[in-house]
């Protein structure tokens, strides 16, 4: 039985827009277990990206507790969160966000530069990540020389290279054609089943959500349903 990786206890997020208070997340409780593939769905402005950012340590909750492997990360300072992210999380963006001046290999290598390790070990890890993402044959290509699906594979390899327990993905197939999207979703799914990674994915697409073990629906910052998918 896999243990709980993330536990959200009554987390809320409040923004001030002028004098108006905006609450994209309101008293949300959630548990995510190790190795789970979780999809977050909901209409625009429902708070799913805010939740994703908080889970990824990119944003902090205004209220409530967020435990990651039993460690409370809701009160960490920005610098501490950055270090925490480097060790425990990886982010996959809809538009890949690869560094255009670096090759696929160098893009994948980037996160390792925040870790202390030999160049030999770095090389080994980068090659392994590129293999896992099935993009090793494009290692020397620059992002502009790759298709959208290939760029997203490089982004996945970059997410895998530090071997983080959590991978968050913000509409990773939103900019891809159907064939590439299916391939990427299959790859994400395999990360959970084969490598026991926890993947949290925001999507608008029910077909993409169907690949997840569980889909949560958010509306106005509140979790309205959440159930395990029967078939995918």
């Amino acid at each position: 039985m896999n243990k709980t990786l993330i536990s959200c206890q009554g987390i809320s997020k409040v923004y001030l827009k002028g004098k108006q208070e905006i609450i994209p997340l309101n008293e949300l409780d959630l548990e995510i277990i190790q190795g789970e593939f979780l999809a977050l769905m909901g209409p625009s402005g429902s708070g799913k990206t805010t939740l994703l950012n908080i889970l990824a340590g990119i944003d902090s909750p205004s209220k409530g507790k967020l435990y990651f492997n039993d460690q409370d990360i809701s009160q960490l300072k920005r610098r501490q969160l950055t270090s925490f992210r480097a060790k425990n999380m990886a982010y996959i963006f809809q538009l890949y966000h690869l560094i255009p001046v670096l090759t696929a290999y160098e893009n994948v290598e980037l996160p390792l530069l925040t870790h202390r390790m030999s160049s030999k070990e770095r090389h080994k890890r980068v090659c392994k990540a590129l293999e896992l993402a099935k993009i090793a044959d494009r290692a020397d290509h620059y992002p502009k020389q790759l298709s959208g699906g290939q760029e997203q594979r490089v982004a996945i390899a970059r997410a895998l290279v530090t071997d983080p327990p959590l991978i968050v993905a913000d509409e990773p197939t939103g900019d891809l054609d159907q064939e590439s999207a299916q391939a990427i979703l299959t790859l994400l799914k395999s990360l959970c089943t084969d490598l026991n990674k926890t993947v949290v994915m925001v999507t608008h697409d029910p077909k993409a959500a169907a690949y997840a073990d569980r889909t949560l629906f958010l509306e106005k910052g509140v979790l309205i349903t959440g159930d395990y998918n029967v078939v995918h």
Binding site: T82, F93, H97, L110
Partner: peptide, 14 residues
Amino acid sequence: KKELATLQAIGFQR
């Protein structure tokens, strides 16, 4: 700007 934000997201200190 976004590129620098990405680098922060993957663990680079400001």
